[in-house]
Amino acid sequence: MPVRPRPLSPHLAIYRWQIGNSLSILHRMTGVALAFGLLALSYWLVSLAGGEAAYGEAIRVLTSPLGWLFLLGWTFSFLYHLLNGIRHLLWDAGYGFERNQRQVSGWVAVIGAIVLTVGVALMVWHGANR
């Protein structure tokens, strides 16, 4: 019988992409993004302690067009990592492993994060133009 070399473990090159692995990768990517967000948060706090001039400079950097883009990205990352993190905690506790539960909770996490991000952006937009 001819022996065909078999893949030893799921590998990116042969893995069939689906919501499960995509959201898992997104969880890690948003986590790394949030690590840089933590750096920005610390910088912002240090500028606050540094006095009015330093704080003004931090706000100027963070509300530049690029700054807004990063803030929007961090907002989505935070909300997604939070919702998907709760999903992971439920799995760790032994719940939600059925196929449809996994898919529904996955869509709730990703769509919920997008909706909440838009909501937060609208709140900020409304506040800035008050």
């Binding site: 933590l38 750096l39 948060l41 610390s42 706090l45 240090v46 606050l48 302690a49 540094g50």
Partner: peptide, 17 residues
């Protein structure tokens, strides 16, 4: 460094300079 700076900054604000 990052966590220490953040916490120190908060305490600085909380207890005044």
């Amino acid at each position: 460094l990052c966590g220490g700076a953040g916490i120190f900054a908060i305490l600085h604000v909380a207890f005044g300079s």
